[in-house]
Nucleic acid binder design. Sequence first.
DNA 1: ATAATTTCATAATCCAGTTCATTTTTAAAA
DNA 2: TTTTAAAAATGAACTGGATTATGAAATTAT
Lengths: 199, 199
Amino acid sequence: MEETVIDYKNILNNIKRYVSLNEEDEQQFISIVRTTKIKRKQFIVQPNFICSHQTYVLKGAFKSYFMNDEGTEHTIQFAIEDWFISDFNSYVNQSPASLFVEALEDSTVQQIAYEDVENLCDKNPKFERFFRLVAQKSFAFSQRRVLSNLGKSAEERYLEFFNLYPSIVQRVPQYALASYLGMSPEFLSKIKKRLTTKS
Amino acid sequence: MEETVIDYKNILNNIKRYVSLNEEDEQQFISIVRTTKIKRKQFIVQPNFICSHQTYVLKGAFKSYFMNDEGTEHTIQFAIEDWFISDFNSYVNQSPASLFVEALEDSTVQQIAYEDVENLCDKNPKFERFFRLVAQKSFAFSQRRVLSNLGKSAEERYLEFFNLYPSIVQRVPQYALASYLGMSPEFLSKIKKRLTTKS
DNA sequence: ATAATTTCATAATCCAGTTCATTTTTAAAA
DNA sequence: TTTTAAAAATGAACTGGATTATGAAATTAT
């Protein structure tokens, strides 16, 4: 038999970085959270289906990626513990997704549905505030990331990512990382060799 | 003597795409808006200064750009009538900007200050909602833009931009557009020639 | 108007990164 | 454990787009 004590501490702490919550607020939020196990290689978002949930990673690892007409995979984001992941465009507009979101390991996630979130925001302005701040910070963060890569060579991009997220580099397949960093897997391989033989 | 009847219709309609406003809401919002004229080549945001306002373009055109260590200009965004522009990362975190925002023409803008916005959101949940939705949509939009350029050649990126924003192509300097599209001005010139001689 | 400054066009050369083809290593499945 | 499949490494040949340089055209300022 499997242990099923569900832990809301992490996701609640995440929220509390932006707004303070009392006991009742916490209960309101918990009531819309659904905890699920996801097997490696399983998809939680797929193109043409509407992305109905935001997913918080309690344990495990995911990648989101776009597949273009030629069938080339373009990695958009990685998510490990304490990160959110989704096809945000599909989620916000409740329109068909263009991304895959796939588990890279057996994982446990906590999901909240679009409608429940909207209702919660309606009912309790603290959450309206939380989701405003999160969206703003996420947008700001994504712009900062664009900036920090501007004019950088492939090697510089790899080094920057390695310094920021060493644990992710170990954990995800190298071809997915190459794709995320905007280079071919062969070239990333070459870079890594250059770096190890150099030092 | 200069005419100074200030027009709030446009910026209010922009808000009303997301939330409905009664007379009092409108007054609340108008009270924090400041209308200013900006001369061509004037900066409204500069690196190391905190970006204290969001700027709505009532008339005119702007670009935001990043200058890297080698002094190369990287255009991030254009804004013409009915667009907002700022260094959003600096604005949201009230941290020093890394972008320039510069007027490309003599312009008229309407600005709202960070603190006033936060107070307004506190006071009136409609605006909390509005700024949540805007941030979410902006983030979603920026992600969509990234996707639509993935795996595209320089020519395809130019064509896509041209189809979406023909008026901007006419209005902004070509080197700035090239920089926005992530190519050298020489190469954009080559592309345009290729396209005109082809047809 | 006209001088000064930006912006745009064109062409030759060059290189960072891709593509393709093969081999080796690692990990999943049975 | 063995089999099978997926991922990583390696190297040779190639290319999209950058760089550099120079002149022409268009704006802006005087």
